[in-house]
């Protein structure tokens, strides 16, 4: 079990220069193992800056990040150990691949952790299997793979470290629909297997409706909402005001309701919509 708490976090870019900009201001929240938290917000709202504080890649000007109640900066020399507990998959992570073979690249993180050769081998093979990376692919150069495959290899490189908390920054950006599905499914699978706390920074309300349990909404550096997906999406006015929206299918249902058709507005994914509408066909009444 791991708990991540953020207390009054404030970060200013380029302090005391003509380009000074407050990226996040006074952000406070707390999350615990087993949750998938979607971090959403307009471009430049401070999402990426916020998550880079979790494993100490950025150091806040004021405020704290607590892992299980202890400040991650308590002992600055031990920050690497924190990074083994809190993994981070950056935007377009395939651009960080560098080894000769996929196997070696996935092993980079576990090797840095100082694990035994046996442990490293087991972790690499387990993670590869979970992410559908075949034995044949493991021996290839990562630069010979397709875009979606590269992305999975890069994600495997972080998952092989088996962090208790894992952050994904736009994990599905630039992937085709099939690639998106696989990545989201694998993230969920990782959570189910390890009980980790997962953060996903995303622009896609549809993706978030599918995988997230809670949503953390950022607006120009401030924490605007932190609640269950249902509660956040039931407030479309507030979301629109900060340049966000509810999923497409939810819009369809609210439009239906406005036209006087008595349907439930709290439908966030296409799958939910299908089963909701099918229930009308079967029983003639809705299941609420």
């Amino acid at each position: 079990m791991a708990t991540l708490s953020v207390e009054n976090l404030t970060y200013v870019y380029g302090e005391k220069s003509p380009f000074q900009k407050t990226a996040i201001e006074d952000v406070t929240f707390s999350a615990k193992s087993g949750e998938i938290i979607g971090v959403i917000g307009h471009t430049g709202s401070g999402k990426s800056t916020l998550v880079q504080h979790f494993n100490g890649l950025l150091k806040a000007n004021s405020g704290k990040v607590l892992l299980d109640g202890a400040d991650i900066w308590e002992n600055p020399k031990e920050i690497r150990k924190i990074r083994f507990k809190i993994g981070m998959v950056f935007q377009y992570p395939e651009y960080q691949l560098f080894e000769e073979t996929v196997y070696k690249d996935i092993a980079f993180g576990p090797t840095n952790m100082g694990l035994s050769a046996e442990d490293i081998n087991k972790r690499v093979l387990d993670t590869a299997q979970m992410l559908g990376i075949t034995a044949e692919m493991l021996e290839k150069s990562p630069f010979d793979l397709s875009g979606g495959e590269k992305r999975r290899v890069a994600i495997a490189g972080v998952m092989a470290m088996q962090p208790e908390i894992i952050v994904f920054d736009e994990p599905t950006a630039g992937l085709d629909p099939a690639g998106r599905d696989i990545v989201l499914e694998k993230i969920k699978e990782y959570r189910d297997r390890t009980g980790a706390l997962v953060f996903i920074v995303s622009h896609s309300m549809e993706d978030m409706a599918r995988v997230a349990d809670k949503l953390l909404v950022m607006n120009s550096g401030h924490l605007s909402m932190f609640d269950t997906v249902k509660k956040v999406f039931s407030n479309p006015q507030k979301l629109k005001k900060i340049g966000l929206n509810v999923p497409q299918v939810t819009k369809v249902f609210s439009a239906l309701k406005e036209k006087g058709i008595p349907v439930d507005e709290n439908v966030f994914t296409v799958n939910d919509a299908v089963s909701y509408l099918l229930s009308f066909l079967k029983g003639g009444k809705n299941n609420d």
Binding site: F84, F90, F108, N112
Partner: peptide, 11 residues
């Protein structure tokens, strides 16, 4: 960015 990514992997 690359430095951050590799540091996150314990480099």
């Amino acid at each position: 960015k690359i430095m951050s990514a590799q540091k996150a992997r314990g480099a």
